[in-house]
Simulated assay, not measured.
Amino acid sequence: MEAIYLIGFMGAGKTSVSQELAIKLEIPVYDTDREIVKLSGKTINEIFAIDGEEKFRDLESEVLHSMPLGNAVVSTGGGIIGSKKNRLFLNEKMNVVFLNANFSTIMERLKDDDTRPLLSQYNVEAAEKLYNLRLPLYREAANIEVGASGKSVSTIVDEIIQRMKK
Rank of each mutant, 00 (worst) to 15 (best):
S40R: 09
S83W: 02
L137Q: 11
Q19L: 12
M67G: 02
Y122V: 00
S120C: 12
K111I: 12
M67V: 02
I156Y: 03
Y30I: 01
E54I: 05
E26I: 06
V146E: 10
G13C: 09
R134H: 12
D58K: 14
Q162D: 13
T32L: 03
S40V: 07
S83G: 02
G41C: 08
R116F: 03
G147A: 12
Y131E: 07
I156P: 05
L69D: 14
H65Y: 05
A72V: 03
F48E: 10
L21A: 02
R116K: 11
E26H: 11
I23W: 09
D33F: 07
G77A: 08
D112T: 14
Y122P: 00
A127S: 15
L130I: 13
I160Q: 00
R109C: 10
V37Q: 14
L90A: 02
I106L: 10
I81F: 08
S16A: 15
A141S: 11
I144V: 13
E108I: 00
G79D: 08
A3R: 00
L88H: 12
V29E: 07
P28D: 09
T115K: 12
L110V: 15
E159W: 01
E46W: 04
G77M: 06
V73I: 00
A72Y: 01
S40Y: 05
T105I: 02
I44S: 03
I36L: 01
K166W: 12
A49Y: 06
T115D: 09
S154I: 04
K24G: 04
L69C: 06
N123D: 15
K24P: 01
K42E: 13
I7N: 12
H65Q: 13
L6N: 00
G13Y: 10
A127M: 15
E20K: 14
D158W: 02
R57K: 11
S104Q: 14
E128H: 15
E26F: 02
N132G: 10
S152V: 02
I156M: 07
G11H: 05
V37F: 05
D51P: 02
G8T: 09
E92P: 00
V37R: 09
L39N: 12
S75H: 02
L59F: 13
T15M: 04
E159C: 01
Q121W: 09
L64W: 07
F56C: 04
R116D: 10
G79S: 13
E62L: 13
D33W: 00
L59I: 02
D31V: 04
G52F: 04
L137R: 09
E2N: 15
P68W: 00
L119M: 15
G13E: 10
T76F: 04
